[in-house]
Design a protein around this nucleic acid. Structure first.
Length: 1099
RNA sequence: GCGCGAUUAGCUCAGUGGUAGAGCAUUACCUUCACACGGUAGGGGUCGCAGGUUCGAAACCUGCAUCGCGCACCA
């Protein structure tokens, strides 16, 4: 017989079968096959960044999607798992810029927009396939014929169409707002792209002089009442006071010596000083007011007065004068209760500025350096450098009162990891559509995860067919909701469908976000992305001349026009403008066209003096259309009709706002229906210490290396096993190792089975280390199981299989992947391999060894006659049939988790042989998902609790017997004689099983056995087991062990007794529980009795 | 500040009212003809703390503590 490797070698196997699946078009979804009997199942992949690399998060995510897809195929559904990649605006552009800098020492500006974009496309072509190939290595069964990219021409048209539609609806608008500006990428960001991080810095207290000091001190006792007395023009006085401002260190010292509590410091120099707390002194030059709370009695009287802004120093005093205003926003508990207002560099300050019509002084450049308005000493410096310098200047002026360490939260740019700069700029915004519908559609039940009603029951629906006819399609599965009508929007308010989040708690987070939703800044100052489909033409001259310039374009395009009179920023209705241009005033106009343009049209517009908006759209503005834009929308394609709405979405909770919520809104807005029915949120993958995976920490393992080392199946299994529903996953390579070990176990269990079959040597081949079937082999697969020949172990394993099928099916229906793998692991390793395979050796061993000489019958044995010569072969064949049945079901249960090895074994074992092509004959992918054994099956084969309990007792006896060996210090490998004194009848086959499991040299079955004093023994419901080892056993040690056991049992007995003696318990407890307790007491007492007897036997 | 999770064996985690579990790690023994990526048998836990509900709580309720996450933030 040729050697097959003892260990499973995944590499060539995985390669081979993936190619096979591709060649056979196993992953391709065909909408025309969808019918009531063959419902659709669909998932769209969360598109990875096109130039990204596979990381553990992807592994988790995509393994789950693959499991769901493969399970759905085995359920007889038409499955579409739609793959693709995301252009990932900033990330990709930054990558290319870096490469450009490194390789050519150039910036994107050196190349210009067009050339730079060419480079990005080249980069995309070169790197874009990497992650796709990595997904293939993982075994993902995506329909690659439908692979999409967010910048495919068709996809881009969807993006433009959506933009134009929302623009028409008035939901997209352009405006000058405070946005989150990233000084590194030099673009605006959405609120979601800003991450708050605690940052250690300083809180600076500095004092400013109130310009009207003299006036205040002179005419009013420094009380709040004085304010009104100072009405009138104070400007001149204030200015002259300011110019006399003392900068002497002396004065400053005196001032700071006074208690700062009040915030108002009337110094001996005859001036009133206000103390201001800030973390950003470098923005002082941009201050245009100082604000206090009008209810704050300390300061209210100063409202309307002015302070002299200390920076920049060089300015003449009159230019430093800024007003003190009253605003409710100011918290008088915080700091000194005096707030410097910098409307151009702070969101809250901007709003205060709006309320008080304050001027905006922008003192920074887009790259985060200070501009000339910041003053000589700061201009040109980076903002953080400028902060230090500003503090120095304040010190020099003697106005710095305090500087203390302070930690506050600062918004960081997620991408560039630098603090964002609130900045006023002109951007495009979107008012989110369909918010209310999106909120209403997510199920908000209080408790537990809710699989769609009936899913579990349906999944478990029994099978009344016999073994031979396991291949009938499951018609009990109701069709998916995939009516083509959903392509058109239903009437408003008609929302029968609900969406389920798993775990449900994310619904609350989702809800909260939708409730407090802010308009979405969708424009980015990047080059890589979907360019905003808006064109501008500026015209200087009167309205009539402007109208004549616009005319050709106006007539050519049906797009939406806006006309803006730039003189006073007034919008004019375009039609009105074209008709009545001669009567309209104005000398400068801007025309704005929002339309989808072909290349030719774009060229035409450029030729006619139009320019396109230079900005591109936020990447998520394309991703949010993913579920339908990938299916051919706006055409009502067969794919869209058959597979939208999708069934499941699998993603990380970190993009619940970025992506999930927005897809839901887009789904409603453009398709009139929810885009998916279930959302499964994975956990976040962390390292062993619970830290997030990150490149800088270097704690992120390369999945490809893991696959090379352990195999894709191992990686998948290990990941699934350690990923409980909704919990973060602490990744440990040990888990993958466990996966590999498990695959190896599966491999060897099948190898064992193969070695039993006739002509095993022909069936097994060492080539490639793979299982191969020999065409000429007469080897039989899944032969008829004969009821009469079933051993108790056979029945036991069939019942365990039934249980495993139920557990795995239920777990999958509830998205509990770690439960499913745990059930599979337990069933296959602990039940099938540890017990059943070992027990089966009783019938599988060569006939000559299954000989009554080894199962000695004592006198008076009640054993049935056991005719080996005639029945042994049949018995063996029957056991093999059971094994084949169990293994065939097992492989199918495993297939979604371990696609490669199961396919290899499915063929290697020949399980595909008698099946129709489309139902497992070609590939296990389409073999039917195992159904639980139903009552007909069980009664036909006589499977019931009796057998299960008997076998449990048998195995328990074995464990006790092995214990005796250990206590007798018998080495694990050594064979010894056991004697068994049965309590009733004992089938010789069961005796043989006992012998094998005990690794006994022989097992004497003797109902009349009279042990010598001191023979170690165990007692079980099946009888007494003796280990006659005169002189070899340490009697005292054995006694000690038994005594310890006795104590243990006594404790248990006392525990149960305590309960049973409590009248409260016996009266109130449900009868079933009472019975159970009584039985428990009996059990423990019986056990104790047996140990006691054993102990007595020793002395 | 608001919200959400977590707290069970050395580690990572299951466990939705009725006898405390798994994997890893660990100890001892074993290369027995499927598998040392293996087998057999062990050891190891007052289930974060304090109250309450209950005949009965790891589980349910109320506080508290610690850790983590999200949202919102006061300069």
């Amino acid at each position: 017989m040729s050697e097959i490797p003892k260990a499973y070698e995944p590499q060539s196997v995985e390669e081979k079968w993936y190619q096979f699946w591709l060649d056979q078009k196993c992953f391709v979804a065909d909408p025309s096959r969808v019918s009531e009997k063959r419902p659709a199942y669909s998932i769209v992949i969360p598109p990875p960044n096109v130039t990204g690399m596979l990381h553990m998060g992807h592994v988790l995510n995509n393994t789950i999607q693959d499991i769901l897809s493969r399970k759905a195929r085995m359920d007889g559904k038409e499955v579409l798992w739609l793959p693709g990649t995301d252009h990932a605006g900033i990330a990709t552009q930054v990558q290319v810029e870096k490469a450009l800098k490194k390789e050519e020492r150039k910036t994107k500006y050196d190349l210009g927009r067009e050339e730079f974009l060419k480079r990005v496309w080249t980069w995309k072509e070169k790197h874009g396939g990497i992650i796709i190939n990595q997904l293939k290595k993982l075994g993902c069964s995506c329909d690659w014929t439908r692979e999409r990219f967010t910048m495919d021409p068709e996809y881009s048209r969807c993006v433009q169409k959506v933009f134009v539609e929302l623009y028409k609806k008035g939901l997209i608008y352009r405006g000058k707002r405070m946005v989150n500006w990233c000084p590194v990428s030099q673009t605006a960001l959405s609120d979601e792209e800003v991450e708050m991080k605690p940052q250690k810095g300083f809180m600076y207290h500095f004092k400013v002089e109130v310009a009207e000091s003299a006036e205040l001190l002179g005419s009013a006792p420094a009380s709040g009442a004085g304010a009104s007395a100072l009405a009138g023009d104070r400007r001149h006085d204030a200015l002259s006071n300011a110019s006399e401002k003392s900068t002497s260190q002396n004065a400053a010292d005196e001032a700071s010596a006074a208690t700062p509590v009040a915030g108002v410091l009337p110094g001996p120099d005859g001036k009133i000083w206000l103390t201001i707390a800030t973390t950003r002194p470098e923005t002082i030059p941009g201050d245009t007011a100082v604000a206090v709370n009008p209810k704050d009695t300390r300061y209210a009287h100063l409202i309307g007065k002015h302070i002299i802004r200390p920076l920049p120093i060089q300015l003449p005093p009159e230019q430093k004068l800024i007003p003190i205003i009253g605003d409710e926003h100011v918290d008088f508990e915080f700091g000194t209760g005096v707030l410097k207002v910098t409307p151009a560099h702070d969101k809250a300050d901007f709003e205060i500025g709006q309320r008080h019509k304050l001027p905006l002084v922008d003192i920074m450049n887009p790259n985060g350096t200070m501009n000339d308005l910041a003053g000589e000493s700061l201009a040109g410096l980076d903002r953080f450098e400028a902060r230090k310098v500003a503090v120095e200047r304040l010190k020099e002026l003697g106005v710095l009162v305090e500087e203390k360490p302070y930690e506050n939260n600062v918004g960081y740019s997620q991408r560039a990891d630098v603090p964002i700069e609130p900045r006023l700029s002109e951007q495009w915004f979107l008012k989110y559509p369909a918010v209310e519908q999106s909120k209403a559609c997510v199920e908000h039940e209080e408790k537990g995860s809710t699989p769609a009603p009936g899913v579990v029951a349906r999944a478990l629906a029994g099978n009344s067919e016999r073994l031979a006819s396991q291949n009938v399609p499951d018609s009990s599965t109701p069709p998916n909701v995939t009516d083509g009508a959903s392509v058109t929007a239903p009437e408003a308010g008609a929302l029968p469908n609900k969406m389920h989040f798993h775990p449900q708690r994310w619904a609350k987070v989702y809800d909260h976000w939708l409730t407090n939703i802010q308009d979405w800044c969708i424009s980015r100052q990047l080059w890589w992305g979907h360019r905003i489909p808006v064109w501008y033409l500026r015209h200087k001259g009167n309205a009539a001349s402007a109208a004549s310039v616009l005319k050709p374009a106006y007539e050519k395009f049906l797009g939406i026009w806006d006309v803006l009179k730039l003189d006073d920023l007034q919008e004019i209705d375009p039609q009105n403008f074209m008709l009545n241009a001669d009567q309209l005033s104005g000398n400068e106009f801007e025309f704005r066209l929002c339309a989808i343009c072909s290349d030719d049209e774009a060229k035409w517009l450029i030729d006619h003096g139009f320019t396109q908006d230079p900005d591109v759209l936020d990447t998520w503005f394309s991703s949010w259309l993913w579920p339908f834009a990938t299916m051919g929308w706006p055409e009502k394609t067969p794919t869209l009709k058959a597979f939208y709405p999708t069934t499941d979405l699998v993603t990380g909770p970190d993009i619940i706002f970025f992506w999930v919520a927005r897809m839901i809104m887009a789904g409603y807005e453009f398709m009139g229906d929810l885009p998916f029915k279930n959302v499964y949120f994975t956990g976040i993958i962390r390292d062993k210490q619970g830290r997030k995976m990150s490149k800088t920490l270097g704690n992120s393992p390369d999945p490809l290396e893991l696959i090379a080392k352990y195999g894709a199946d191992a990686l998948r299994f290990g990941t699934m096993r350690s990923a409980p529903l909704g919990q973060d996953v602490l990744f440990d390579e040990k888990d993958v190792e466990l996966g590999r070990n498990f695959c190896n176990k599966l491999w060897n269990a099948c190898r064992f089975r193969q070695m039993q079959g006739q002509g095993a040597a022909d069936i097994l081949s060492a080539e490639n280390g793979n299982f191969r079937q020999d065409v000429g082999s007469t080897f039989e697969v899944e032969g008829e199981i004969c009821r009469e020949l079933l051993t108790s172990d056979d029945k036991w394993i069939l019942l365990k299989l039934d249980q495993a099928i139920r557990e795995v099916t239920t777990a999958l229906a509830e998205y509990k992947f770690s439960d499913a793998t745990a059930a599979l692991y337990r069933f296959f390793w602990n039940e099938y391999c540890d017990w059943y395979v070992e027990a089966s050796k009783a019938t599988l061993r060569p006939v000559e060894t299954l000989n009554r000489e080894n199962v000695e019958s004592g006198s008076g044995s009640t054993n049935q006659p056991f005719n080996h010569s005639t029945s042994a072969t049949a018995q063996k064949q029957n056991t093999l049939a059971v094994m084949d049945f169990v293994l065939s079901n097992t492989l199918r249960l495993f297939h979604p988790f371990l696609p490669f090895i199961t396919e290899e074994l499915w063929h290697g074992m020949g399980f595909n042989k008698d099946l129709p092509e489309a139902q497992g004959g070609k590939t296990i992918m389409f073999a039917h998902w195992p159904k639980p054994l139903d009552d007909d099956f069980k009664s036909h084969y006589g499977l019931d609790e009796t057998d299960e309990q008997f076998v449990n007792a048998k195995y328990e006896l074995v464990t006790q017997g092995r214990n005796l060996r250990r206590e007798g210090n018998i080495q694990a490998g050594k064979k010894v004689k056991f004697v068994f004194k049965p309590a009733g009848e004992l089938n010789p086959l069961d005796a043989e099983v006992l012998k094998i499991l005990l690794n006994a040299e022989s097992l004497e079955v003797n109902a009349n056995y009279a042990p010598k004093k001191g023979t170690p023994q165990v007692l079980s419901p099946l009888g007494e087991l003796f280990l006659p080892l005169e002189g070899l056993i340490d009697v005292e040690a054995e006694k000690a062990r038994l005594k310890k056991e006795l104590e243990k049992h006594e404790i248990e007995i006392q525990k149960v007794l305590a309960k049973l003696n409590n009248p409260n318990f016996t009266e109130k407890v449900p009868p079933a529980v009472l019975e159970e307790h009584k039985k428990r007491l009996e059990d423990w007492r019986a056990k104790k009795q047996k140990v006691q007897s054993a102990l007595d036997a020793l002395s």
